[in-house]
Amino acid sequence: MTEGLEGGCLCGKVRFRTTQAPLRTFACHCTFCQRVTGSSYYAESMFPMNAVVLNAGALSSYEHISDGSKKKVFVHFCPNCGTTISLTFERWPEIRGISRGCYDDPNAVEVSSHIWTQSAQTGTALPKGVECFAEARVTLEGQAEPSTRHTAPVMARAKSDA
């Protein structure tokens, strides 16, 4: 992955660039991320706040209280087309998550883990060899959570099927 990823929203009014490689890129299967995207999960790259520069346009934001941490999560989106560009977090004020689907080349970053897989929608494939966490990567107290690496792709099931 090269430094200086660029991307933007669907209509092109909001553009951004990054000044370094992401700290990590993961797919989140929590119900909040499912609603934010209107899809099965949200893939985002995490950066230090000062490593993301808006080149064009201004973002609108929506404030949400996390079910897990009870801290604020801010959804930043294009006011014209509604594309979710990024998330910021009261819990981690120095971090900005950038939507992987907004990169000009989304394949420039690899998904290194899947989180909140206990909420993954039926039919979602969890990949072979990638860290998968039932919930978050760390507890609210900051302790690392255990992960699973599947030896073959695994299909997620709805809770009622477990």
Rank of each mutant, 00 (worst) to 15 (best):
M1A: 11
M1C: 05
E6Q: 12
G7A: 06
K13N: 13
V14Y: 02
V14W: 06
T18Y: 03
R24I: 09
T25M: 05
H29F: 05
C30K: 00
T31E: 15
V36A: 13
S40I: 01
S40E: 11
S40W: 01
E44W: 04
F47P: 01
V53F: 04
N55M: 13
G57M: 04
S61N: 14
S61A: 11
S69N: 05
F74Q: 09
C81G: 12
T83K: 02
T83N: 02
S86N: 08
S86G: 08
S86A: 15
E90I: 02
W92I: 09
P93A: 02
E94M: 09
I95V: 13
R96A: 06
I98R: 07
S99K: 11
Y103H: 08
Y103C: 09
V109N: 01
S113M: 14
H114W: 06
H114A: 07
Q118T: 11
Q118L: 07
S119C: 13
A125S: 10
L126A: 06
K128R: 13
A136E: 11
R137P: 04
L140F: 01
E145S: 14
P146H: 09
P146L: 09
S147G: 07
R149N: 07
M155N: 03
A156K: 03
A156P: 04
R157V: 13
S160M: 06
D161R: 11
